[in-house]
C-alpha cells in the first residue's frame, strides 16, 4: 500500500478489502497515529449503514450460556491479560499415577460440564498454566451430542490433543490442526487429530513471535496436500500467545 494516503488506507481497512498483512499494518499504524485512527472512525460512520443489508439472524441459544460462563471465569481469574487467563494457582500435591494434573482435571471437568448442558459453541478458551507455561485450549462444537478436543500446547511445541465426546467424520476424512498467525493469510499445518483417545503432535511450526489461532479443518484422508486448508474450517480458538 505504498504511496496511499491515510484516508485511502482507512477506507480500504474499514471496507474489509485488505489482506491479513495489510490489515495488521493498518492496525499497528492506527495505534500510533491518532489521525489515521480518526480517519478510520470517520469511514466506519460512513459505511456502517451497509450492515442494514444483512438480515438479523438469531444465534444459537448456547451462545449466551457459553458467554456467561466466560464472563464468570474472567471475573474470577487473577492476572488477566487480554483474553488469556491464568489457571487458578493450586498448591502442588503428590498425585497418583494416571491422575490428571489439577489444571487438566479442571479443564476436563469444565469440558464435561459444558457437554452436560449440551449447549456449547465452537469455542476455545485459552489458559496459561503458571509453571510450566503450557497453554490449554478447548475446542467444542455448537451442537449438543458432538465432541471436540482439549489441546495442550507444551513449551517445547508439542501439542497433546485429547478427543472429547463423539466426533463424526467420513471414513475418507481426517481432522487437521492449523495455526493461523496474526498478520498472515496462510495458516501452517500442524498435524492430524485423532477422533478418539489422545494424539500427540510434535511440531516446530507453531508461531513464536505473534499470537495465533488454532484452527481445525475437515480434510480428505491423510490431510491437505496443498499446505493450506482445503476442507471447511470447523473450529477456531481465541488468541493463543506465542
Amino acid at each position: 500500500m505504498s504511496g496511499t494516503s491515510d484516508d485511502d488506507r482507512a477506507g480500504l481497512y474499514v471496507l474489509g478489502a485488505l489482506n491479513a498483512e495489510e490489515m495488521r499494518a493498518v492496525q499497528l499504524a492506527a495505534a500510533r497515529d491518532p489521525e489515521l485512527a480518526a480517519e478510520i472512525a470517520v469511514w466506519e460512520r460512513r459505511l456502517a449503514p451497509l450492515t442494514a443489508l444483512v438480515e438479523p439472524q438469531e444465534p444459537p441459544p448456547s451462545l449466551w450460556i457459553q458467554l456467561e460462563a466466560r464472563l464468570m471465569r474472567i471475573s474470577g481469574a487473577p492476572d488477566r491479560v487480554a483474553e488469556v487467563y491464568q489457571v487458578p494457582h493450586q498448591r502442588a500435591k503428590p498425585r497418583r499415577r494416571g491422575t490428571p494434573s489439577p489444571a487438566l482435571a479442571w479443564w476436563r471437568n469444565a469440558a464435561y460440564g459444558a457437554m452436560a448442558v449440551a449447549a456449547v459453541l465452537a469455542v476455545a478458551l485459552v489458559y496459561k498454566a503458571p509453571a510450566p507455561r503450557s497453554k490449554l485450549a478447548m475446542l467444542l462444537p455448537a451442537r449438543p451430542g458432538e465432541g471436540g478436543w482439549l489441546l495442550t500446547v507444551k513449551p517445547n511445541g508439542e501439542i497433546v490433543a485429547d478427543a472429547q465426546g463423539a466426533l463424526s467424520r467420513g471414513l475418507d476424512q481426517d481432522y487437521e490442526l492449523w495455526a493461523g498467525e496474526d498478520g498472515s493469510d496462510r495458516p501452517v499445518p500442524l498435524g492430524l487429530l485423532s477422533v478418539t483417545g489422545q494424539s500427540v503432535i510434535k511440531t516446530s511450526a507453531l508461531p513464536t513471535r505473534r499470537n495465533y489461532l488454532l484452527l481445525v479443518s475437515l480434510e480428505k484422508k491423510g490431510g491437505s496436500v496443498s499446505g493450506i486448508p482445503t476442507g471447511p474450517v470447523v473450529f477456531s480458538s481465541s488468541e493463543v500467545p506465542p
Binding site: 474489509g16 438479523p56 444465534p59 444459537p60 465452537a122 470447523v234 477456531s236
Partner: peptide
C-alpha cells in the same frame, strides 16, 4: 446479538465460526 451474528455469518459462512466470532 442477532445483528452481530448475521454480520459474522456473512463473513465467515460457518455457524460455529460465526458464534465464536460473536462470543
Amino acid at each position: 446479538a442477532a445483528r452481530l451474528y448475521a454480520v459474522a455469518m456473512r463473513i465467515t459462512r460457518h455457524a460455529n465460526l460465526a458464534a465464536d466470532t460473536v462470543q
